[in-house]
Amino acid sequence: MSAQPLVEIRDVNFTYDTRAILKGINMDFHRGKVIAIMGGSGCGKTTLFRLIGGALKPSRGEVRINGQVIHELDEKGLYAMRRKMGVLFQFGALFTDLSVYDNVAFQMRELTDLPESMIRDLVTMKLHAVGLRGTENLMPNQLSGGMARRVALARTIALDPMLILYDEPFTGLDPISLTMIGDSIRRLNNALGATSVLVTHDVQESLKIVDYIYFIADGVIAAEGTPEEIMATDKPFVHQFVHGLGDGPVPFHFPASSSYAEDLGVRA
């Protein structure tokens, strides 16, 4: 494990209006690893994700990437930093008015001076890496959900990023596409020597491919560890989450202010 982690998250707090979403988060993402951030819906995963991408500024604390504090960068510095990042959005976020080819070539054309012949070779390679060579001329609306996600993956790695962020990469996919995406994430991370961070709540799929897992609940890290440690843990929350139990520390019932009997007008 290299000395300095690629991403260091130090005591990050984030408050939206008056609601505290993240409370004192500390994380280290080491180079070459695939890390998963898990938690129930609305636990602040996506907020954390946006903090890493520099789209939000933490109320307190800091996120460092490669030693640089993200929220202290000016626009130019932030853009330079983002060039080294790849982001896969929840539903791919392919540009609907561009073909598959143009989508993958988008960053190469916008951000580099590469000649078109070289761009074509690169696009072919990227599409081959996700198993979709031959789809160059299709439009995004002609792709299935799984294929669109893989094209988006090809676009994400277009400029060989050092840090790849995945926002819910497994949402809404059939089991076959799910495994394909999971395998691709792992394989591409190793091939590029990058660091991948998955924000997800798909436990089973992530446990297969990640090196380290953080659990977030109520804005704090509830548990962390390698997949083996997580599987073996007896912490009630993690146990409930990993095994997908309907009731446990996270109750099935919303904590209503009045009792059920009262609401029904039954006298106690």
Partner: peptide
């Protein structure tokens, strides 16, 4: 729709300014 499907956000994360592009 580009905003709703996060295309603008994706562009921004690619360090391409969606306003200018």
């Amino acid at each position: 729709l580009m905003k709703a499907t996060e295309q603008l956000a994706a562009m921004e994360m690619m360090s391409i300014n969606p306003i200018s592009r």
